[in-house]
Design a protein around this nucleic acid. Structure first.
Lengths: 327, 327
DNA sequence: CTGAAAGCGCTTACAG
DNA sequence: CTGAAAGCGCTTACAG
C-alpha cells in the first residue's frame, strides 16, 4: 500500500488535519509540530494523492492547453513549441502541470475539453489558436471557466495575449520604405485570420504614413492553410507587377514566394514573421517572441483563475513586443 | 452546484451504483434502465468528476510525457512536435489525455514527475529523451510504474520504441557509395548520444560491406548540444581531407556544415536525418518517421499499463521503419 | 495550536 | 438485474 496522510499522522503522533496544515504551511501550527511532521513525511517518502486533494479542494494545479485540429501547419510551425516552452517554464516555476488536448475533428476536441472542464482536471485553459465562434471557447464562457487566448484576437470580451501585429507590420513595411524601396508587395496567409488582417492593416498604414499609394494588385492572400504551395502560385500572379521588395506574413509563405523567385531567377528582399530564425535566405524577419507570449499567457491565466475565484470579471489584453531582426 | 451522480440517480429513479454501471456499459444492466439513465445524464448534462473516479479506481486515463531539460535544441527540433502529434492522435482516439512535464533543471523535473507518479495523476510515462542513469527513469523503475522510452536506447531492460539507426545510416551511406562517391565524410552530433553512435556504426558497416577503408580523419563528432556553430567549426577541420559527399546525423548539423561549405564555395552532396522535410539545400534525408514513433509509443505504453495491472513484466522493443527521401 | 467529524463524488464488493 | 454500505485519501469548518 502507498503511504497516506494517516501513516504520516500516526508516525508524527498528530491528526491527519494537522498534517494537512503542515503541508499548507499554515501559520497556526507550531514550529515544533511542523518539524516533527516534516520529518515523518520524509521518512515515509510521503506524497499526497492529488486526486483526493483536487476532489475536495476543487483546484488541480494543472492548466489545459487547447490545440487546434491536428494539422500539418500547426505542428510544423515553430510557434507552437516556442509558445509551449514559455508556458511550461513559468508553469514549472509555479508548481503547475500542463495538460494538452487536441483531436482530429471538432467532436473529439470537444470531448477532450469537456473532460478537462467538467471532469475538473484543470484550473484554466489557454487556447493556442483562434477561430470566430469557436464552440470550445463558448463552452468556457458559458461555464465561466478561466481561460485566455494566446496569439490572435477573436471576440472582443475575452482575455488575450498577443503581439501588436498592426504596429509590427507597420515597422516591417517602413523598414523597406526607409531603404528606398518603392514597390513593396504584400503576401499574406489566410484572409480570414485576424493575424493576416492586422498585418495588412499595418502595411497599409505604413504606405499612407510615407505618402505612398496603396496598389491592391501588389497584395495577395493565400487561401487554405497558409501552405507553401499556395504562396508559390500566388507569387506567380504577383510578379506581373513591378516589385522591388516583399512582405510576407509567415515563413511558410516566404518559402513559397522564395521558391518561385529562385525558379524565375528573380532576387527580391523579403521580410517574414516568425518565432525562430528562419532557415531560408531572406532579408529580415519580425520576431514575434513566442516564448514570451507563452510566459505572459501563463501568468495572466493565473490572474484570471484568481479573479474568478474572487468573483471578479476582468478582461486582460496583453501586448508582447516584437523585434525586427536582420539576417 | 455542479450535477453529480446522485442527481442523475434521483432523476432516473435508480441508485448511484446503477448509474456507474451504465457509464461502464456493464452487461448486467437491463437495456431499459440503461436508456432511462442515459437520458437523465443527457438532460442534466452530466459529466463525471474525474478526480473522484481516479481516487477510487486508481486509473486516470492520462499519460505523462517527460521532456528533457528546457533547451533550445529540443524545442527547435521538429522531432518533438512530430512525436507529440503521433502520440496525441492515438491518445485522443483512446480517450486519453496527455500531461507534459519539464523543468529548467533536474530538481524541478524530478518534482514534476513525482507529482505525476506519486500524485496518481497519470497511468504511465513516455520519455522523449534518453540519458544514461537518468534518475527520473530510475524512479519509474523503482516504483514499477509503467513507462517507455521513445527514440533512443538507454538501459537494456526498459521498453522502447526507436528507429533502427544502424540500418538507416547503413542505407544512407550505401546511397552515396552506389552513386560512385569514394570519400564520404561523417559529421555527427554529441558522441555520448546513443543515436550518434548507432549511426556511426551504420556508416562503418556500409563502408566495410562495400570493401572501402574507414578513414577516421573523415569522421567528426560535434560536442555540446548538436548546435549549428559547432558543426560549422568541425566542418572547417574536415575539409582538410579530400571529400566528395557528407553524411550528417541531424539537419541542425547539416546546417552548420552547409554554411561552412557555402562560405568556402564548396558544393558537396549532403544527407541528414530528420522528421520533416529540411528547408535547407541538401541532397536527401532519412525520414525517421517521428509521428509513427509517437503513435506506436502510445499503443505500446497502453500494453505496458495493462501488463503491469496483470502483474506481467514484458520488455518491448519496437522498431519503426525509416525512409530515404531525395530532395 | 490541534483534533474529531463530516464530506468531496465517485466505485466496488456484498447481498439479494 | 439492482441497491445499501463502505471507502478511496484528502480538506474544511467547527469546537475547544
Amino acid at each position: 500500500m502507498r503511504t497516506t496522510i494517516k501513516d504520516v499522522a500516526k508516525r508524527a503522533g498528530v491528526s491527519p488535519s494537522t498534517v494537512t496544515r503542515v503541508i499548507q504551511n499554515s501559520s497556526s501550527i507550531s514550529q515544533q509540530t511542523k518539524e516533527t511532521v516534516r520529518q515523518a513525511m520524509q521518512e515515509l517518502n510521503y506524497h499526497p494523492n492529488l486526486n483526493a486533494r483536487s476532489l475536495v479542494s476543487s483546484y488541480t494545479q494543472v492548466i489545459g492547453l487547447v490545440l487546434p485540429e491536428d494539422s500539418d501547419f500547426f505542428y510544423q510551425n515553430p510557434f507552437f513549441p516556442q509558445a509551449l516552452r514559455g508556458i511550461s517554464q513559468v508553469a514549472a516555476d509555479n508548481g503547475y502541470a500542463i495538460q494538452i488536448s487536441t483531436g482530429k475533428n471538432e467532436k473529439q476536441r470537444m470531448e477532450a475539453i469537456s473532460q478537462m472542464v467538467y471532469g475538473r482536471r484543470v484550473d484554466g485553459l489557454i487556447f493556442l489558436y483562434s477561430m470566430p465562434e469557436d464552440p470550445l471557447v463558448q463552452l468556457a464562457i458559458q461555464h465561466n471557466f478561466p481561460f485566455l487566448i494566446l496569439g490572435k484576437a477573436s471576440s472582443p470580451f475575452v482575455s488575450l495575449v498577443d503581439n501588436d501585429n498592426i504596429q509590427a507590420c507597420f515597422e516591417a513595411t517602413s523598414y523597406f520604405i526607409n531603404k528606398g524601396y518603392k514597390n513593396i508587395g504584400f503576401v499574406a496567409g489566410n484572409k480570414e485570420l485576424v493575424v493576416s488582417q492586422d498585418r495588412y492593416e499595418g502595411y497599409k498604414n505604413a504606405l499612407k504614413a510615407h505618402h505612398m499609394e496603396l496598389d491592391e494588385a501588389k497584395v495577395k492572400f493565400s487561401s487554405g492553410f497558409l501552405l507553401e504551395d499556395n504562396s508559390y502560385k500566388v507569387m506567380k500572379k504577383l510578379t506581373k507587377q513591378p516589385l522591388d521588395a516583399i512582405i510576407t506574413t509567415d515563413t511558410i509563405v516566404a518559402e513559397g514566394v522564395l521558391s518561385y523567385l529562385k525558379e524565375t531567377g528573380l532576387d527580391l528582399p523579403i521580410i517574414s514573421f516568425d518565432s525562430v530564425m528562419p532557415k531560408i535566405d531572406i532579408t529580415a524577419y519580425v520576431d514575434i517572441n513566442a516564448t514570451k507570449l507563452g510566459r505572459v499567457s501563463f501568468n495572466t491565466l493565473l490572474q484570471i483563475i484568481n479573479d474568478t475565484k474572487e468573483g471578479k470579471q476582468v478582461c486582460y489584453r496583453r501586448v508582447i513586443p516584437h523585434t525586427i531582426i536582420e539576417l
